[in-house]
């Protein structure tokens, strides 16, 4: 665990370092907001659950198609904070991914360009841990967009329910079968309902619920120190 400490300690350091280099603008404003203390109780702080739909898995070639997020506050998911936006992209949506996210070219054409959406996303994330399921996608795609548009890195404390799930399996000496750690395979273990919809907002909500369930089971009725949940990424 000590590595997590140092990593996170260095995350706030990374934030300040990036802030010093980046030009004034949405990313600078974002980086100017301090991250919560790693000793904070997750039950007391706002956390943003996020999901992105993308055209593929490679942030160098693929782009963000839609953004969905919802905020957790005092361990309650506030649906009034839910936000969903479709990105207008500069190319056709590959057929093989459309099967998953159901976003059509027409819907995308009616969306807003990423240049317009990224400032709002950064504003909503400022000063809050980002809660995702499998963090590589979200962090890499937002980072790539930030580098391209603002010339600086996207630094963010991350809570990853896939990592927490993995830890629970290991702690219980369970062998992990392929697919066990997928969002919709983990949820039934906590008696969470199955959702039919598959979109960025619905998945962000599903992730938020999963996190509440995991945290309450790991720390029943007790404070949940943020540091214990932060990803190494």
């Amino acid at each position: 665990m000590s590595s997590v400490f140092t990593r996170f300690f260095s995350k706030d350091y990374q934030r300040k370092k990036a802030l010093a280099r980046v030009a004034p603008g949405p990313l600078a404003d974002y980086l100017a907001t301090p991250f919560p203390d790693r000793k904070s109780d997750c039950r007391d702080i706002p956390i943003v659950a996020l999901d992105l739909e993308t055209t593929g898995l490679d942030p160098r070639k693929d782009v963000i198609l839609s953004i969905g997020l919802v905020e957790i506050n005092h361990f309650g998911i506030r649906l009034g904070t839910a936000w969903h936006s479709i990105v207008r992209i500069d190319r056709d949506i590959p057929g093989e991914t459309a099967v998953i996210h159901h976003i059509t070219d027409d819907q995308s054409a009616a969306g807003a360009p990423i240049e317009q959406l990224l400032p709002e996303l950064l504003q909503r994330l400022a000063g809050k841990p980002m809660l995702v399921h499998y963090s590589a996608i979200e962090q890499n795609f937002i980072n790539t967009a930030c580098q391209r548009l603002y010339g600086g890195p996207f630094v963010v404390p991350i809570i990853d329910t896939l990592e927490i799930g993995q830890r629970v399996f290991v702690r219980r000496n369970h062998t992990i079968q392929p697919g066990d750690l997928r969002l919709f395979n983990l949820r039934p273990r906590y008696n969470l309902p199955q959702y039919k919809a598959h979109n960025a907002l619905s998945d962000a909500l599903a992730t938020a619920e999963l996190f509440l369930a995991m945290a309450d089971n790991l720390y029943p009725g007790r404070p949940c120190p943020l540091g214990e949940f932060l990803s190494r990424r």
Binding site: F75, L192, D216
Partner: peptide, 15 residues
């Protein structure tokens, strides 16, 4: 209605 909803989780035995 949905925007006024808050979601919470109670583990078994939770108050």
């Amino acid at each position: 209605l949905p925007k006024d909803i808050e979601i919470r989780y109670l583990r078994r035995g939770g108050r």
